[in-house]
Amino acid sequence: MTTQNPDAAVLVLEDGTRFAGRAYGARGTTLGEVVFATGMSGYQETLTDPSYAGQIVLQTAPHIGNTGMNSQDNESSKIWVAGYIVRDPARRVSNWRAEESLDDALVRDGIVGISGIDTRALTRRIRDAGAMRGGIFSGADAALDGAEQQRRVTEAPEMAGQNLSAAVSASEARVLPATAERIGNLAVLDLGVKQSTLENLTALGFDVHVLPQSATFADIQAIEPAGVFYSNGPGDPSASDTQVAVLREVLDARLPYFGICFGNQLFGRALGLGTYKLTFGHRGINQPVLDRATGRVEITAHNHGFAVEAPLDGPFESPNGYGLVEVSHVGLNDQVVEGIRAHGIPAFSVQYHPEAAAGPHDAHYLFTRFRDLVIATQEASK
């Protein structure tokens, strides 16, 4: 009689590829879209970023967990990834700020992971074939029949078409007071917002009103906002018609608007542009982006699997009647749209994360740009 190995684990991709390794974190089964993140550090911020909901995250850096976990660096109240894949997890924590090990945090939040596999080979597979559904089976579930494991993976929902904002958004509104000279109220539609983003916005002088993803334009008007912000978040932007409709009302009212990541994709849709799924997406804190207005190249933090379709050869008319708009930022690895700016209305967005937790900070100026836009709009209305 064979004895089950409680530390066994296997990763199964929808194309039939299998990787055998060791259980890491909680034991059991998890299903999701397998994606890779290229950051050498910042795994805690990645794990607690709500944008990663529904995704099994592969770290391309081989050594993960060295600095442990602490309560100060969390971007939300829990770990959101569907599963976690690393090559060599740290055997012990070596950082004075650590309060627990990464392994303990994964177990506490019920995150099933796998370690000890060839993450380079897996990354190459995803890069060549594209992000795909996968499953991690560990502990007793690692001994399940291979055909049964494959069936579970292929029956899992695909990321395309999913609206996940309701799963990660705040259930009720809350207010964070300004920590600098007050400018006014800011409506933040929480589609999966990160804590560091909120801290940056309060530091600009905004009383930040965090609203659930179900908020209406009337809810936004009720706080008498000086501006509106749409956050990052998971899922397919083509499945968020309600939030796009609300954003069109914001733009019609000429309220200053700033969107990041998911907020960039929804801004594109509100302008009348399409979106599409990238082959393997951009995830990590080392993505080069060109600011076309200044010619400056920024190293930026990304987490997106979808992008906006827009002309790159200069200003063009918004299909939905908002005047001239242009692509303001472009990804240098693949020429993907990384930012949009409107000429006739006070609105812009970027596809990446200027709050830059856990770095770099090249794009932090975008928060100041938004503050200046709000102040200029206030002055013009006097």
Rank of each mutant, 00 (worst) to 15 (best):
I183Y: 11
F262M: 12
T30K: 03
E298C: 09
F217R: 00
G54F: 05
A187N: 01
A358D: 09
Y352W: 12
A140M: 02
G113D: 05
L201G: 02
T279C: 11
Q351Y: 07
K382Q: 12
A167L: 15
V57I: 09
V168Y: 04
A160W: 00
T279A: 13
G321I: 07
A143E: 10
N303P: 00
S214Y: 01
T17Q: 12
T30P: 02
Y276V: 10
T300M: 14
F267C: 07
F348S: 01
R269M: 05
W96C: 09
T279I: 14
R22N: 10
Q72M: 13
R283P: 01
R283F: 15
L11K: 01
E326S: 13
D207M: 05
A90T: 04
R108A: 14
A226G: 14
F306W: 10
N5E: 11
G113F: 04
L186P: 06
Q150N: 09
A8K: 10
G274S: 15
K194M: 15
F316R: 11
V325F: 14
Q243N: 15
S381M: 12
A53H: 11
N286R: 12
M132G: 12
L278H: 11
R92Y: 15
P360S: 04
K277N: 10
L191A: 08
R254D: 14
F258C: 11
D103S: 09
P311M: 10
S349C: 07
L271P: 03
T67E: 11
D128Q: 15
Y322Q: 07
E317Q: 15
G16S: 08
D49W: 03
G359D: 11
G233V: 01
S165L: 12
L189R: 04
A90G: 13
Q150V: 07
T29Q: 11
F217N: 00
L373I: 02
G321S: 09
I375H: 05
A253T: 03
A26N: 01
D88Q: 14
Y84K: 06
T17W: 03
V168H: 03
N66C: 09
S318L: 07
L204P: 06
Q351E: 08
I285D: 13
R133K: 15
L186M: 06
A310N: 04
G227P: 03
A160D: 01
A98C: 11
V153S: 00
R108H: 14
A26T: 00
S41Q: 12
L366W: 08
D109P: 02
G116W: 06
R174G: 13
D88H: 15
H361P: 05
R174D: 10
T123H: 15
Q195S: 09
T368E: 08
N185G: 03
T3P: 02
A178V: 05
G233R: 02
P237M: 08
A37H: 08
I345H: 10
D88M: 14
E317R: 13
V210W: 03
P354V: 04
T60R: 13
V112R: 05
H343G: 03
Q4H: 12
P6A: 05
